[in-house]
Design a protein around this nucleic acid. Structure first.
Length: 463
RNA sequence: GCCGCCAUCGUCUAACGGUUCUGGACAUCACCUUCUCAAGGUGAAGAUUAGGGGUUCGAAUCCCCUUGGCGGCACCA
């Protein structure tokens, strides 16, 4: 049984787009194998906890349509799915490690820790704990009994080669001497990530640990824990980290990173997911646009590349445009009215859609392009004061149009332009500005038809 | 600094030792279409496959070194 999981920390205002990418890969792999996709909230850092974060993260994952099987809000056979509710479990397991000699108590002061760190740095060595407390365990235990704060550390063996296989990267090797005696249990009684992740992944029967590359270097520590517990290793896959255009790690400064931002901008969830799927992976037939169902069909974990891809918002926009253009009109209408919180009159929106579907790349492009349908222009891109004479004539001409249809309006205007010896382009631009206020608009004749005769004449009256 | 991962057009990628003077997509540019902007169509430009050594009859593809990018080195995840 394939069981995958994402383990977000509720320390931000939403799920990071990079984490959404990891979620997608976990999700698709679970689906592909008819397995389960689990969400576990890793809230072991009490200081960085952000209120409402967990709920928002879950909400966003749902909004993107990544269905999950087990989670804090969904129950499941291995609950609870929030680490802060699993404290006794970690306590029990860390005690087992102590009995086995794989972990030990430490009550070194912050000052001492800082000092050995300083010295190591000065000697250009890896800053790591010097196992000072390991040789005085009995003493430490006495002090703990008296109420002195303590932590529990991983007892990293010396000079041991640690090897593991990563689906995406192949065999990864590292010498244990490069590893620190990581704190497993903090003085507040909460586990650190390293302990909690191993214990939970095992207890929750996670078959594939699919997470971002930033975890690659701490995986050896986790291997040590699996070995100490005598547990079999899950399959590891470290997916690439999404990058900014300059290839630095995707960050707030250079790109919007909260996943819901993309929804708020009017990107379609399917389009974002489709784009994300193309990060480090490509369709076997080189297709760029495909349904998630097809993605599930053809995806394979081992086909993901280990390179850090740049997140290109321009290509995302293109893809979103492709998705919008393929939408049936009724869906489109629903999305637009919904996007604008049902404040736009539906009947007009639906009429405008054929005019703008080829012109917008995201839902938020709609209003800037179509605002003139809902209200008179309050400013004009070009000063029309020199065109008054022409516009007065145009008004008279339009008034005589009996059948208020795009083609008759167009024909009438074209004839008039010819008669007045005004260049077609110039003529229509003048009229466009007068009606819409903008240099860029949907096709004019059709727009005028939608606006209606009365409204168009009214907009010309002011000249 | 140490450890690790990675390296094909500006960007995302294809190629799974030989149908490749590297193919596609986005972006760019030109032309066509056109009342604006798009969309669409056609085409162009863009990569001595980071550099250097090997292995091989043959290397973008395998190995080594260099360089560069990224990640990690917390009582954060």
């Amino acid at each position: 049984m394939v069981r995958t999981r994402i383990a977000p920390s509720p320390t931000g205002e939403d799920i990071h787009i990079g984490n959404l990418y990891t979620a997608l890969i976990n999700w698709v792999w679970a689906k592909k194998n008819k397995g389960k996709f689990i969400i576990r909230i890793e809230d072991t850092d009490q200081e960085r906890l952000v209120k409402g974060s967990q709920q928002k993260i879950l909400e966003t994952i749902n909004a993107f349509g990544l269905h999950y099987d087990e989670a804090p809000d969904r129950d499941g056979p291995y609950k609870p799915y929030r680490q802060s509710e699993r404290l006794p479990i970690y306590k029990k397991h860390v005690e087992e490690l102590i009995r086995k000699g794989a972990a030990y108590y430490c009550n070194c002061s912050k000052e001492r820790l800082a000092q050995i760190r300083r010295i190591a740095l000065k000697q250009k060595q890896i800053p790591k704990y010097d196992k000072h407390c390991l040789s005085r365990q009995e003493e430490v235990k006495e002090e703990i009994k008296k109420g002195k704060p303590f932590v529990i550390r991983l007892n990293v063996p010396e000079n041991k080669e640690i090897k593991f296989r990563d689906v995406i990267r192949g065999e990864v090797k590292i010498m244990s001497d490069n590893l620190d005696d990581q704190v497993l249990m903090k003085s507040d009684g909460f586990p650190t990530y390293h302990l909690a992740v191993v214990v939970d992944d095992y207890l929750m029967k996670i078959s594939h640990v699919i997470r971002a590359e930033e975890w690659l270097s701490s995986t050896p520590k986790h291997i040590l824990l699996y070995e100490a517990f005598g547990w079999p290793l899950p399959i590891f896959a470290h997916v690439p980290i999404l990058r900014n255009p300059d290839h630095s790690k995707l960050s707030k400064r250079k790109n919007p990173v909260w996943a819901s931002w993309y929804l708020e901008q009017g990107y379609l969830p399917e389009a974002v997911l489709n784009y994300l799927a193309l990060m480090g992976w490509s369709h076997p037939e080189q297709k760029e646009i495909f349904l998630m169902s097809e993605f599930v069909e053809v995806f394979d974990l081992k086909d993901i590349k280990a390179v850090g891809p740049a997140f290109d918002r321009v290509k995302l926009e293109w893809m979103n445009g492709e998705y919008l253009r393929k939408l049936p009109i009724s869906n489109f209408q629903f999305l637009i009215t919904n996007f604008y919180k049902n404040k736009l009159p539906k009947d007009i929106v639906i009429k405008t859609i054929p005019l703008i579907r080829e012109r917008i790349k995201k839902l938020s492009d709609y209003l800037p392009l179509c605002e003139f349908f809902f209200k008179k222009p309050d400013r004009y891109d070009i000063d029309l004061s020199s065109k008054k004479e022409l516009l007065v004539k145009v008004r008279k001409e339009l008034e005589r149009v009996k059948e208020w249809k795009a083609d008759t309006i167009g024909q009438t205007m074209q004839d008039m332009a010819n008669r007045e010896k005004v260049k077609t382009g110039e003529f229509f631009m003048t009229l466009r500005i007068a009606i819409t206020g903008k240099k860029i608009s949907p096709p004019l004749n059709e727009s005028m038809e939608i606006l209606g005769k009365e409204e168009c004449l009214a907009r010309l009256d002011i000249f």
